[in-house]
């Protein structure tokens, strides 16, 4: 897997020397970057055996487990940041998970693929089929991504659980950030993915 574009954004949002939990840390690429470039005290949570093995080989602290079930066991305010990169859509209960992130961490960094992106909308509108994109190459019947949302949906949920969006970076298809000043409905149409920095109110 090449370096994901949202990683750069996440790196820029996390302050040096902080405590970070990466939920769904995969092979540990982001956690390793954060450790090396930001000097964070990092921990990971990952479901797959392969990911856990790769993290261990990198010397990262990683717990094998499921975000839906394991997050409840982490203490309040245990971390400065809890990161959920491209994982929210694969959880059983995204709202509960987001609530847990903001309980465990002072801040949460959440990156999501945007189902409001115009190509996704166009695929459904013109082809009449569930969109399969380059980044999300699963078919509807085998996808682990069971809870897709759009940027607008995500913002609604953040408001419902009382989270403040401190920063948001919306990326286009080439991984370039779109101007933050643009109205949300434009970002929701042209952003392929988004990274949010959230804080508990």
């Amino acid at each position: 897997m090449g370096l994901r574009v949202d990683f750069d954004v996440i790196l820029s949002l996390v302050k040096d020397g902080t405590r970070v939990l990466d939920v769904g840390c995969g092979d540990g690429t982001l956690l390793e970057l954060l450790t090396k470039k930001r000097g964070v005290d990092g921990r990971g949570l990952e479901l797959s055996q392969q990911g856990v093995d790769q993290c261990l080989a990198k010397g990262l602290s990683v717990v094998q487990g499921n975000a839906d079930r394991e997050l409840v066991y982490y203490p309040n305010d245990g971390f400065d940041y809890v990161i959920l990169s491209q994982t929210l859509q694969a959880t059983c209960n995204p709202k509960k998970v987001l609530g847990e992130l903001l309980r465990i961490g002072k801040r949460a960094v959440v990156s999501i693929p945007n189902f409001g992106y115009w190509r996704v909308r166009a695929a459904l509108l013109f082809c009449g089929r569930m969109p399969v994109t380059k980044e999300l190459s699963y078919s509807w019947y085998n996808t682990p991504n069971i809870h897709f949302c759009t940027i607008a949906d995500f913002l609604d949920m953040a408001q419902e659980i009382g989270a403040t969006v401190e920063e948001a970076v919306v990326l286009n298809r080439n991984g370039q950030p779109l101007a933050f000043k643009l109205p949300w409905n434009t970002l929701n149409l042209f952003g392929q993915q988004a990274v949010f920095l959230l804080r508990r109110v």
Binding site: Q49, L56, S61, V63, Q64, G65, Y73, P75, G78
Partner: peptide, 21 residues
């Protein structure tokens, strides 16, 4: 084992955990 892991998490310890198939 998970009970141990949860306790270590609660104590803020550096912990890794794997369940092998």
């Amino acid at each position: 084992s998970r009970i141990i892991v949860h306790a270590l998490n609660a104590a803020g310890a550096s912990v890794s955990f794997a369940e092998f198939e």
